[in-house]
Simulated assay, not measured.
Amino acid sequence: MAEIEIKLDRPRIDELLAPYRQQIGNDFPGYRNHVYRTVTYAMHFLGNHSRYEPLVETAFVYHDLGLWTDHELAYLEPSEAVALADNEKYGWGLDPDALRGAIHWHHKIRPYKGPHQAVIEACRKADWIDASMGIIRKGLSRAAIKQVEAAFANEGFHKTLLRLAKDYGGSTLVGGIQVTRGIVKW
């Protein structure tokens, strides 16, 4: 597999995140860097083909957004709804089925097969790498993951997820169960 390409500046990501910065609050640096890491991994799996970039960047900006916009642990559908509404409102012209699918299936345990398979599967693998902090590598080298993590520091992102599970679920255990039931797909 080719060396991983790291883009330190992705204006689309920053533009799309900007309207949600206040809602995300103190969690913003961690979420932004999570988005950058996952986009980097997904684009790598897609051979860095520019035709995928707007969809991948948009999907990852929105993929967890429901945690903050709707305060929901089952955040996939709220995240999809915000992404689809903004896609229509701002006329981005992204395929709504591909955008919805990239968000909806990003926690799927088994490989995704179906429409828009290449991009959805790349996003799924990318999020598993970052959610597991590189324990699950999906074919990437440890060195590549370390490069990406060095470029985009964690900024407490994984601690944020635990805190939100506790805040929204009443306890980390109950929240963790709610998250798992609400977002993990087979």
Rank of each mutant, 00 (worst) to 15 (best):
V119S: 04
R100H: 14
A74P: 06
K113E: 10
G101R: 12
R124C: 09
Y52K: 09
D70N: 06
I103T: 03
W92R: 15
T58Y: 13
W92Y: 15
G66C: 03
V39E: 03
T40A: 04
Y41M: 05
W105N: 14
V61K: 07
R51S: 13
A81M: 09
V56F: 00
R51H: 11
W105P: 09
W105M: 08
L94T: 13
A131N: 13
H116C: 04
F45E: 01
K113V: 05
H44A: 05
Y62I: 03
I120Y: 12
G91I: 07
L55Q: 04
R100V: 08
E88I: 02
G114K: 09
A118R: 10
A81R: 11
A42Q: 10
F45C: 01
Y75E: 06
R51V: 12
I109G: 06
E57I: 02
D86C: 02
D130R: 10
Y112P: 13
D130G: 09
E88S: 07
A42H: 11
Y90K: 07
L84V: 06
W128N: 02
H106G: 07
H106A: 04
D97L: 15
A98P: 04
Y41K: 03
P54K: 15
A59S: 15
W68H: 15
L65V: 01
L55W: 03
K125S: 06
T69C: 14
V56D: 00
F45M: 09
A59L: 13
S79R: 09
E77N: 05
Y112V: 00
E88F: 06
Q117L: 01
S50A: 13
A98K: 01
L65E: 01
H71S: 11
L99E: 04
A126L: 00
T58D: 05
I103Q: 03
D127R: 02
R110S: 13
V39M: 04
G93D: 14
R124E: 11
E72R: 10
T40C: 07
M43I: 01
W92I: 10
E88D: 10
P111N: 12
L46T: 11
S79M: 04
A42G: 12
E57L: 03
P115I: 09
Y90E: 07
H116S: 08
G91V: 03
R110C: 10
V39G: 03
R110G: 11
H116D: 06
A131L: 12
D130Q: 08
L73Y: 04
L84R: 07
C123H: 14
H63W: 02
G93W: 13
K108Y: 04
Y52V: 02
T69S: 15
R100N: 11
P115C: 07
P78D: 09
A126I: 00
F45P: 00
A83N: 10
I103S: 05
L76Q: 04
L84A: 06
L76K: 01
